[in-house]
Design a protein around this nucleic acid. Structure first.
Lengths: 68, 68
DNA sequence: GATGAATGTAAAGTGTTCTTGACATTATCC
DNA sequence: GGATAATGTCAAGAACACTTTACATTCATC
């Protein structure tokens, strides 16, 4: 599952650690999700999308078309 | 995390088993998600929302406000 | 009352998500 | 060169998502 979290985060001048603190997850979790090592849980996907004021489908893309 | 999968499914006259087959998951998985026993993975949440032609935020509600 | 379809739930097993702690690299600043 | 900040990654373990198998209940129909 692709995502654009790194772009959204850096556009706001946040470090991985700072974003993790905002969402109550570790910086390693942010790093792993940005690197695509695994997908976040649904609750964390909600937190991420809400933090960036976007729909989940606008932040993540499972590559099955009709994303939004 | 709340969801309205049962309402969406029954409105289409589908059994839990039939929905599971459509999405390639077991009927127990559909049952557990409808019952709120656990949240689906993000990929399964995408499949469910896409099947019902809705945004993930319209199918699931993590109760933190500003759902859509 | 027997049959079949739909549902609820439990147990055991597998793979995934997330944690903490640790170590390495790179870049900047003094 | 030494200190600090940001990032990449690994390992071990806890917690969660999902599977198969199995058994029970409910309801409709015969």
């Amino acid at each position: 599952m692709k995502n654009c979290i790194r772009a959204l985060r850096t556009a706001r001048g946040l470090s991985q650690e700072a974003l993790g603190e905002q969402l109550n997850v570790s910086r390693q979790t942010i790093n792993a999700i940005e690197a695509g090592r695994y997908d976040p849980s649904l609750p964390l996907a909600f937190k991420l999308a809400r933090f960036f004021a976007l729909h989940i489908e606008d932040v993540f893309d499972d590559g099955e078309g009709a994303a939004s």
